[in-house]
């Protein structure tokens, strides 16, 4: 009896979490007359890919995806690279000092990005990097660095000290130790950190909006929100929903494959403060 109740509750939780997403997919698959019909049609009577096609043919949606990939990919690579350098250095310090430095970094990490838009914009405008991929990549890397350093430092610390010393005696250069010993042995952490950073960047909105103002440089979230413009009638809801579906499915696939790691990464990441 108690079990059944729990199963029902669990079902409700799933429904609650997934409904908006399912509704988006359903809307995306409807032809436009079904999208705007009253009473609301739940399951599409005819499946149509018209909306998805329109998203690519009528709008530079492919371009948005490319932008997002460049920015999120670039930022992920840069973040991992810089973060592993920093984490490697932190590891060579004693734990107390390293923890103190890390705390300092982490205070920066919980600042909501909306409050960072102005400072980032001012700095990047000075560097003439507004509207450049690299500007946004830099901003994202800065934003995600504390998290990545934290994850990698924890992973590096887990490796026995003797391993590092053995490498030292074997004649590895410091660079060699980082790339041939530390990084390969921390591969699970590296990949999960990479995935999380990628998702953060893929999803980020306000910095993308502020730092890449020209339309051809929109990332996917900005592009989609701009599709909407204002409200109700003129808005191509079918296409918007198709765009939303197309953006979110890859994220969901990644999450599905890496579920356990993502949860671990997130919790350790959040418990860092």
């Amino acid at each position: 009896m108690k079990k059944i109740l729990l199963y029902i509750l669990m079902g409700l939780v799933i429904l609650y979490c997934l409904f908006p997403f399912f509704w988006t997919i359903l809307t995306a698959l409807k032809p436009s007359d079904e999208v705007f019909s009253l009473p609301v049609i739940y399951l599409p009577k005819t499946l149509s890919l018209e909306n998805s096609e329109n998203v690519f043919s009528k709008r530079p949606f492919g371009r948005y995806i490319l932008n997002s990939l460049i920015v999120a990919g670039g930022a992920t690579a840069l973040t991992l690279w810089v973060a592993s350098l920093i984490a490697f250095h932190l590891r060579s310090l004693d734990l107390k000092k390293a923890t103190r430095i890390q705390r300092g970094l982490l205070i920066g990490a919980i600042i909501p990005p909306a409050l960072l838009a102005i400072p980032f914009f001012v700095v990047l405008a000075k560097l003439m990097l507004v509207n450049h991929y690299f500007g946004l990549i830099l901003a994202y890397a800065a934003l995600n660095l504390p998290f990545a350093v934290w994850m990698l430092h924890a992973a590096f610390r887990q490796l026995p000290k003797e391993l590092d010393e053995a490498a030292l005696m074997d004649g590895f250069s410091p660079m060699g130790r980082l790339f041939k010993i530390f990084m390969p042995l921390s591969r699970p952490t590296l990949s999960i950190t990479g995935v999380l950073v990628f998702i953060f960047c893929w999803n980020e909105f306000i910095l993308a909006l502020t730092l890449m103002p020209s339309q051809l440089k929109y990332t996917v979230p900005v592009g989609i929100s701009m599709l909407s413009g204002a409200s109700v009638y003129e808005i191509p809801w079918g296409e918007i929903n198709a765009a939303v579906t197309l953006t979110t499915i890859p994220v969901i696939l990644i999450i599905a494959v890496l579920q356990r790691w993502v949860i671990e990464g997130l919790t350790t990441g959040a418990m860092k403060g």
């Binding site: 026995p160 003797e162 010393e165 053995a166 004649g171 042995l185």
Partner: peptide, 29 residues
């Protein structure tokens, strides 16, 4: 630096590289 002292060390917990095969572990130096 340690690498230039021409010494070799065997650690208490052996400190073998877990991601390299035995041959590589021995050959890397």
């Amino acid at each position: 630096s340690p690498r230039e002292r021409n010494i070799a060390m065997v650690f208490q917990n052996y400190a073998l590289y877990p991601h390299k095969r035995v041959f590589e572990n021995m050959a890397i130096g």
